[in-house]
Write a protein that binds this DNA or RNA. Structure first.
Lengths: 337, 337
DNA sequence: TTGTATGCGTTATCAT
DNA sequence: ATGATAACGCATACAA
């Protein structure tokens, strides 16, 4: 900036004024300065300004895995919201490790991001002393965090979602339903399991709930399905607890295609192409990311209200997979021959 | 930091030394300083350091759409590489618009990112004067950019990939093959189209090449397939040019399932679950992102060598969809009855 | 309308 | 081993 000033024979302050579109500069002076800026290709660096005014116009996002569709949609939504406010987004993966999470949070705080959206890796208060001390506004997403002080949180309606799945299957006449959940380490997986069990109870379905928590592979799914379908009271439908379960499950489900109905928690690309087209519980990760970012920006804009928790609704997208299976035509032919 | 210094009865410089683990501090002094730091919960802010040493330890990534699996895998890989070097990653979507791309690039440059990985929206030299002037190292990814000066570029072997797809189909006896490409606005789509045509020519396959460029919807795919399968010399196989084409195409391909083989460019989740399991040309977005980031860090670490272009190989993952279709059993039964 | 002095938090230089 | 001071690039307050 000093270079520009020298070149245009004005003071740095005048250049600053021009760059920031401040009033009080004679048009021709401004023009001259702009000319030089254009010629040299100058851009104001925010580092100085940041230092001076203590704001970086950058927010941070911490997720488990950027490559996971669920998180990538969240990430895209948060970035979009940030762009609306002319903010930039720094993204970091914690890879499910609380340790790594702490370390990336420290990095983010050191960079003095103005705010944070965090999908907490563990439930232990990520409310790291570092973050607390920095007084950086934080919005938690997808999972709550235990904390003495209330914190802004955006959740999905896991209980309602799983309930809609069970009710859908029951409406189709299913009475014996299995639940394939993700690892019990994951809060949402536990929530859905509990929701599943609670719904069965509320609906007074007979028998003990059939639950197989993950992490799952095609093999573990096959084992569970074999067990569930071979007893005296075989399951006729299963619910997969999230996409990480649905993907390996779909392979195995094929083998039971003629007997088992299913509902998948989380929509997925090609959900309408697989056979049968998958009925899914759709939670809108884009909406979740957007809501979290909006709440964060409300804070950044001065909202001092009490911490809030938002629970976003899920939507059951009905396709074919929830309906009772009929023996496929070729199978019938084979057995008839 | 000054507070710490006062509290510990040392100079700021000494505190700085302790914080940065610089040598030349007496152990007991260091210990005392650390104690105070611990007590007041101090964290060095990078803004001052950035200002002083002109480095942000942050790199920027510009892609089209963070939610697109291709880009989200790239993004995850770049972020991972950044983390290895203890850098942070700022991601921004250009949404395919050169205008927006310029604007996000300006934002990134203003933040003084130390380097950039850019998936260019257009082919017009994104080599924006702003970026040039900032002398920020840039690595282009997935698509080249026309520029007077050579620039580091990481590409995928589009020609080789499409060739492997065609050859695979030809090896399975197909002679009449259609190509469903993405919008011709996209460089990679054009590359693959050209590669397709060139391969047909090299293999001396008869007839004019059948090409339908996008953007595609299930309808446009259906129209093309209807046309191609209804003539005197019907196609027996199609190639989809990328995932944005494969997804809508899969819906329509179902209707032709008994006649058409296919190979999809780009692997996709569930590629082995769809029926028939999809043979795909796999370009490894994670490897691409990693390579680009590695090249960028090489530059950041002082590599002054001439600009390089890397062309990463693709891999044909053979599943079932490339083999000639036989009438499915149930269809045969029906026609026999 | 324009310019000068000062400070933001940190590190580098050069003392002591 | 430690400290005083300048400097980084910009914006704020104030002066001219």
């Amino acid at each position: 900036m000093a270079d520009i000033a020298a070149e245009a024979h004005v003071s740095v302050k005048t250049v600053s004024r021009v760059v920031n579109h401040e009033p009080g500069v004679r048009p021709d002076t401004a023009e001259r300065v702009r000319g030089v800026i254009e010629r040299v290709g100058f851009r104001r660096g925010d580092s100085g300004a940041t230092l001076r005014q203590g704001r970086t116009f950058t927010i941070g996002l911490v997720v488990e895995d950027l490559a996971d569709p669920f998180y990538s949609h969240i990430s895209a939504a948060v970035e979009r919201e940030a762009r609306i406010h002319r903010y930039l987004l720094v993204t970091a993966s914690a890879e499910g490790s609380p340790t790594r999470e702490r370390s990336v949070l420290k990095g983010l705080v050191a960079r003095r991001v103005d705010g944070l959206v965090v999908v907490p890796a563990g439930e232990t208060p990520v409310a790291d002393p570092t973050v607390i001390a920095s007084r950086t506004p934080v919005v938690y997403l997808d999972r709550p965090v235990r904390s003495e002080t209330a914190v802004d949180t955006v959740l999905s309606d896991n209980l309602g979602g799983i309930r809609s799945a069970v009710e859908h299957l029951v409406a189709h006449g299913h009475r014996r339903i299995g639940f394939l959940g993700d690892s019990p380490d994951v809060w949402t997986a536990r929530q859905r399991r509990e929701g599943f069990v609670a719904t069965l109870r509320d609906l007074r379905l007979p028998g003990t709930p059939l639950v197989a928590m993950g992490p799952h592979t095609p093999e573990t799914v096959r084992t569970a399905l074999t067990r569930w379908t071979s007893g005296a009271d075989p399951v006729t439908a299963v619910i997969t607890g999230n996409t990480r379960v649905t993907i390996p499950a779909l392979t195995s489900l094929h083998a039971w295609a003629t007997q088992l109905s299913f509902v998948a928690y989380d929509d997925f690309e090609l959900s309408d192409v697989v056979e049968p087209a998958a009925t899914v519980v759709h939670q809108d990760p884009a909406a979740m990311g957007q809501k979290a970012a909006q709440q964060l920006f409300a804070r950044l804009l001065g909202d001092e209200g009490p911490a809030q928790t938002f629970v976003l609704p899920t939507r059951l997208i009905v396709r074919a997979s929830g309906a009772p299976r009929r023996p496929a035509r070729d199978v019938r032919n084979v057995s008839a021959s």
